[in-house]
Amino acid sequence: MSNQTSERRQRSAAWGFLLPALGLIAVFFFLPVLVGLVMSFTDFDVYAIGTPASIRFVGLRNYAQVLHDDEFWNALRNTFYFVAVGGPLSVLASLVAALLVNAKVARMKSFFRTVYFTPVVTTMVAVAIVWRYLLHPRYGLINAALVALHFKPVDWLGDPHYAMPAIILLAVWKNFGYNMLIFIAGLGSIPEDLYEAAELDGAGAWARFLHVTLPSLAPTFLFVGVMTMIGQFQIFQEPYVMTQGGPLRSTVTVVMLMYEQGFRWWRMGLATSIAFLLFVLMLVATAIQLRFQGGEARKA
């Protein structure tokens, strides 16, 4: 058999192998994204569902409208709050858990690792419901614990100042295990002799952590930071199940606003423009993070 026929056969086989996946991705992912871009320049709305002939091309009007809308800025503020507070908190919790599980003296590492990871695989809707009850002002375990520690009970989901913190608590609990795994892997790849050298230089445990562990973890931090942020910008289920966006719209997020505009009011043109704005925002935020943290990571 000649090399050439083999290559030709490989080429046609390759396309055969690729066809189902690429076909599905092209039709059900790329095409909707492109159509979405077009749609965001139209006034596709509830009338359009009944009367398709009523769709009009409106240029950038949807984008202008969204950017002039207090609702959007409110949703953006709430989302940023969630990302800016929830992100670092979640990464911190993951790091602490990873350090504990990875500690030389720790036993039953895989047991603890599994326990900490468990919330990650649970169904968000189900655990959000569980947390709704844990956060109940009168009967919830969390307030019972606060009272036992002589704090005042908090109306978590009824008070606009506490609703987002409550959702952040849930999100941290649900997700810290994922990043913990990645930190454990990162910790495992730090060469032992770095620590030994530091110890010879007389560095204590804290100094070793600051000067060896943290810098060596820089690339892990970058990965964890970007992935966490991307996920968190898309937060939807937690507020949908726990608060429906309330109280006083204090937990409406950008994706939730998009869902409301798109699938509640059926202003789909407007909703897609919100989605694209979110996309741009995520790109910018990721670029910023790559620039700053990426610099750190390269230094290490």
Partner: peptide, 20 residues
Amino acid sequence: VLMAALVIPSQVGMMPLFLM
């Protein structure tokens, strides 16, 4: 191209996908 598309959040295609 596929790798680059990983950054696109699924929401941007959600409305047209629903109509499809």
